[in-house]
Design a protein around this nucleic acid. Structure first.
Length: 221
DNA sequence: CCAGACGTTGTT
DNA sequence: GTCTGG
DNA sequence: CCAGACGTTGTT
DNA sequence: GTCTGG
């Protein structure tokens, strides 16, 4: 699955890479955790937009915010039919920028974190969904979830699930709110080619979501 | 009809 | 909002 | 995802 | 064990 990741570029790099129209207030992050506001690329009528959304999707019909603790990931194989996600899957797909993500491997009673990234780029995108929620007191929260699938050969030894990473070719298809071809969309939700990724152990300092900084992605020998 | 869930992963 | 279970 | 709280009263 | 916070 995907419960912690990093974005190690500045705001301008995100704007340039995703070709969005607006500016955004963002600094590099080494330890992004659920419940935080994360940069998300959405398709607007005029073009792409970067927005900061709460990580942990709150379905539009939710009576309170309680669900935001569990909806951080959506399974690729069922996302089109699950009550909490199917509306967002139809009309509110997004890209969730990242530079890498962390997975923990259970080894003899301990949990060893790994950083996983792409060999040839500092920026890529998870396949995501977003949702608009208005609470009974008039609160408004836009939130998002990262789609997950089975692990590829690189990740398998560490964890049996991994986030869906979209190829750049898939961005437009995924973002198009008028694309209602479920099969075409689901075809994008496959494990990324392991040959294009790399994976290495890091310090358990990343475990605590309060910790930040470049040390978090240093390889642990 | 109303009540309650609506999610994922991992562990026992 | 919509589906399932009772 | 992991870490940390999980309770009340009264005092500083 | 389960929930909340980061």
């Amino acid at each position: 699955m995907c419960g912690r990741y990093n974005i190690i570029t500045d705001a301008q790099a995100l704007v340039d890479y995703f070709d969005v129209l607006n500016e955004i207030d963002f600094s590099p992050r080494y330890n992004i955790a659920p419940s935080q506001d994360v940069p998300v690329v959405r398709q607007q009528d005029a073009g792409r937009e970067l927005a900061l959304l709460h990580w942990g999707l709150i379905p539009f019909w939710a009576k309170d915010e309680k669900l935001k603790y569990s909806m951080i990931n959506a399974r690729a194989d069922t996302v089109h039919e699950k009550p909490a996600y199917r509306e967002a899957f139809k009309k509110r797909r997004c890209l969730i920028p990242a530079s890498g993500f962390y997975e923990w491997r259970k080894e003899k009673g301990r949990k060893q974190p790994y950083n996983i990234r792409l060999k040839d780029t500092d920026i890529f995108a998870f396949a995501g969904l977003w949702e608009h929620w208005e609470g009974p007191e008039g609160e408004v929260i836009d939130s998002c979830s990262i789609i997950v699938t089975e692990a590829n050969k690189l990740i398998e030894p560490i964890h049996d699930r991994m986030p869906v990473i979209l190829s750049t070719k898939g961005y437009d298809t995924w973002l198009d709110p008028d694309n209602h071809n479920t099969n075409t969309l689901r075809d994008l939700l496959t494990p990324y080619p392991p040959a294009k990724m790399e994976c290495y152990p890091v310090s358990t300092v990343v475990n605590n979501a309060r910790n930040e900084g470049a040390d978090l992605i240093k390889e642990k020998y």
